[in-house]
Amino acid sequence: MKIKRRAFLVLGSLLGLSPYLNAQVINGFQKEFKEVEKTLYAVQDHMFPEGCPLPSAQAMYMTQFLYDTMQHHSFDKDIKAFVIEGAKELQKREKGKFNTMSSKEKEKALRAYEETRYGSSWLSRIMTLSMEGMFSDPIYGSNTKEAGWKALGSYGSFPRPKTKYLES
């Protein structure tokens, strides 16, 4: 059954809709993203920390990738809203302290968030978008020096893109 996705993504947050949902301009998104940027980074950093077989969120500029990929007009606006709303909800659940928590505390907070259907789906989406950056062509700004591909031992095929689809 695939009919409930939008209702789930957009209306599932306890906080309700962000005002930017109705705004058609990029600036609205830019402002909303800025508000949750540190939380998004903290989550990505916890999922992809330094010293693991896969490159880290920091080294892969995963949060910047998240912004770049979502700001394009072709990106699904419901998912865009979901990413923002889900981060706000995490902030609220943890009373604004998530970003400064220790790794152990973050693990506990995220696992608790994962217990909710909404939180579980949001974390899954953040992982998907982060991996899109890490394993897509380096032209998109993540996967720097092909570090993501090197970790897999598998590389992108040829011909590689000469331009970003984001430029269209």
Binding site: M47, G51, C52, L123, M131, S136, W149, A151, G156
Partner: peptide, 30 residues
């Protein structure tokens, strides 16, 4: 690559992340 790396990264309904995720993906590809 993205879809192969992303698939099946759950154990008992919970996402795998961090070191365990890296090891899991590495094994799948290599």
């Amino acid at each position: 690559l993205i879809s192969r790396a992303r698939k099946d990264n759950e154990v008992k309904g919970k996402l795998v992340w961090g070191k365990a995720l890296g090891e899991r993906v590495e094994k799948r590809f290599q």
